[in-house]
């Protein structure tokens, strides 16, 4: 397990990362979301030991992390970097060797991954000849070489086509099911919602929410939607543990302030006439995100 405790980083007067704490559990996919400039990349760089921190602690398997631990992590930086003029396979073998693999093992591992990402016939091509999406796949392979003990990936999905997204998802799941912690940042909330076990949301350098998708979606106030056969205007004056959020024609959305108050509301509605719909409203992740980062 990778834990960040009160991690802080300042650049001059700007506090890019402010007292950030969260953990990335073994065997789970943790999504890292937040707007541009929220501090995700800086946080990931500190987790990789590329940037020093001004305060806070990073722990690995319950103890203070060391450079030798971080060197066994698989890392994919935000801005894609490869040698443009070198052949894909040579480049991956080089990076694999730097991670402590033998040349033969690195070659075998790289070829296997490239095959799965549909690049098997392009292993001898120079990187500069590849499309951006394909260059990114090569980078992902670079991060996965050599059985990393954790994965820290900055925007691994950006620029990938749907097939590649599926292949990538498969790869990430495979690694998390090996029992290693996987942290990846993304702007694509629908994707994060679909594949992540847990979520960390950052805004303005701070963690503003964390938990499973279900926890985040249900963490807010409980809301119900009421759809009547007639005008719902009376709901505004119902009170009794109910706060009307939005009343429009025959529909009303209310927030339940006292547990069980929604039942009284339903009883009243049924007494007044037909009820077409009465349901709990669970906000989409994107709505939750908008709310916590606002």
């Amino acid at each position: 397990m990778l834990e960040l405790q009160g991690v802080t980083r300042r650049f001059g007067d700007l506090t890019a990362v402010d007292d950030v704490s969260f953990e990335v559990d073994d065997g789970l996919l943790t999504g890292f979301v937040g707007g541009n400039g929220a501090g995700k990349t800086t946080t990931m760089r500190m987790a990789m030991g590329l940037l020093a921190r001004n305060a806070g602690e990073i722990r690995w398997q319950g103890r203070q992390i060391e450079a030798t631990d971080q060197r066994r992590f698989g890392y994919m930086p935000e801005e894609r970097g490869l040698y443009p003029k070198q052949r894909i396979i040579d480049q991956l073998v080089y990076l694999g060797e730097l991670h402590g693999l033998t040349a033969a093992a690195a070659r075998a591992s790289a070829t296997g991954y490239l095959d799965r990402l549909g690049l098997a016939d392009r292993v001898k091509v120079r990187v500069e000849k590849l499309s951006l999406g394909n260059q990114q796949k090569v980078q992902i392979v670079a991060a996965l070489l050599g059985e990393p003990t954790a994965l820290i990936l900055d925007e691994p999905f950006s620029g990938l086509d749907p097939d590649a997204v599926d292949a990538m998802t498969g790869l990430l799941r495979e690694h998390s099911s090996r029992g290693i912690p996987v942290l990846f940042s993304s702007h694509q909330l629908d994707l994060v919602e679909r594949i992540c076990d847990r979520l960390v949301v950052m805004a303005r350098g701070r963690v503003v929410a964390r938990g499973t998708v279900a926890e985040l979606r249900t963490a807010g106030p409980t809301r119900y939607l009421l759809d009547l056969g007639a005008d719902a205007g009376w709901v505004r004056d119902f009170h009794r543990g109910i706060h009307p959020v939005d009343v429009d024609g025959s529909r009303a959305v209310v927030e339940v302030e006292a547990s069980g108050a929604e039942q009284a509301l339903l009883t009243e509605a049924v007494r007044r006439g037909p009820v077409h719909e009465f349901a709990r409203v669970i906000p989409a992740l994107s709505d939750v995100y908008r709310e916590v980062t606002a």
Partner: peptide, 17 residues
């Protein structure tokens, strides 16, 4: 500067001193 510009240096120094 080529390594710095292409950011591959981040990958390299995350693997070796």
């Amino acid at each position: 500067v080529e390594e710095k510009q292409s950011r591959i240096v981040e990958i390299i120094v995350s693997a070796i001193p």
